[in-house]
């Protein structure tokens, strides 16, 4: 059975999946999501444990308003960082961009490991809690996901979203049509970073502790798997992929020691059986037409 704690982890997975999806919707394979996730998480961990103005008490509680502020600041800082590095790395394409973003993840991981105020390898622990139980985290995580989903849904009808789709289909043709491809790609990259930064800030509180391991190359691959399994043609793909792949290892616990073998099989067979992912445009079109035939 899925308890609220696992549900929050699933929602965080879905948010990270969306963060990988956004640059991909503009045709950019960026694996930088864990870097921005780590920035948001580290910032929230530092602020809530060191900055008394946020109102953390000795009993380890935190006012809700401070959490919202941290979500905003985490997103903002990650977005600023993305704006700075985006101009440089987005000149690269395809696999070269992927490698550059992996480097970004590594640089940030090593930086967080070695900075004098981030607790080294042990990290920051005793992060104050805005909620008494895991159930409390469901609401902010769901709200963040709903906001991101609403934005992605709107994006498909907005000029920015269409420009992103055009670049994904053919960047050269898009540029010839007069689309400012650099700025569109940068916007998608920054949006992805803001989402990952806010998610990190929420995750730091949920996990009670934060260290450099949270934003590692492993997370890049896991989050990419969310998009590959779920599908990269609609924002619902990474959401479904993130929810499913986060829950699966936990739901497989009854099978015992082979559960990770089964999990690996799912990741292997997913793209083989559904090359476009679980959520394809055709599926969405079928869902959209559902019921129409009867009306006619």
């Amino acid at each position: 059975m899925i308890d609220n704690g696992l549900l929050v982890q699933m929602l965080i997975g879905a948010l990270l999946g969306l963060s990988v999806y956004l640059p991909l919707a503009a045709g950019q394979l960026s694996l930088a999501t864990p870097a921005f996730y780590a920035v948001g998480g580290t910032l929230a961990a530092l602020l809530s444990t060191r900055w008394s103005a946020l109102g953390a008490t000795a009993a380890g509680t935190l006012p809700l308003g401070s959490l919202v502020l941290e979500l905003l600041l985490g997103g903002l800082l990650a977005g600023l960082l993305a704006l700075l590095v985006g101009r440089l790395v987005l000149r690269l394409q395809g696999i070269y961009l992927a490698i550059a973003t992996i480097a970004l993840v590594e640089i940030l991981r090593v930086a967080i490991l070695n900075l004098p105020f981030t607790g080294g390898a042990v990290g920051i622990f005793g992060i104050p809690q805005p909620f008494a139980t895991a159930a409390g985290y469901v609401l902010p995580a769901l709200a963040l996901l709903a906001l991101a989903g609403w934005w992605c849904q709107r994006l498909e009808g907005m000029p920015l979203g269409r420009a992103m789709a055009a670049i994904r289909d053919d960047e050269l043709a898009a540029r010839c049509m007069g689309i400012d491809t650099t700025n569109v790609k940068l916007s998608a990259f920054v949006l992805s970073a803001v989402l990952a930064g806010s998610t990190g800030a929420l995750a730091a509180h949920f996990l009670n502790t934060w260290n450099a391991r949270q934003g590692s190359f492993d997370v890049s691959i896991t989050t990419l798997a969310f998009v590959v399994l779920g599908g990269s043609r609609s924002w619902l793909g990474p959401v479904v992929g993130g929810l499913l792949l986060t829950a699966l290892p936990e739901l497989l616990r009854p099978v015992g020691d082979v559960r990770l073998v089964l999990f690996g099989l799912v990741i292997l067979l997913g793209p083989v059986l559904a090359p476009q992912g679980l959520i394809t445009p055709a599926l969405l079109a079928r869902l959209g037409r559902w019921g129409e035939e009867k009306e006619r």
Binding site: E156, W235, L236, A285, L287, G288, R289, W290
Partner: peptide, 11 residues
Amino acid sequence: VVRQRGALRLA
């Protein structure tokens, strides 16, 4: 439009 409606329903 149909696809977006499908996405909304799935969401």
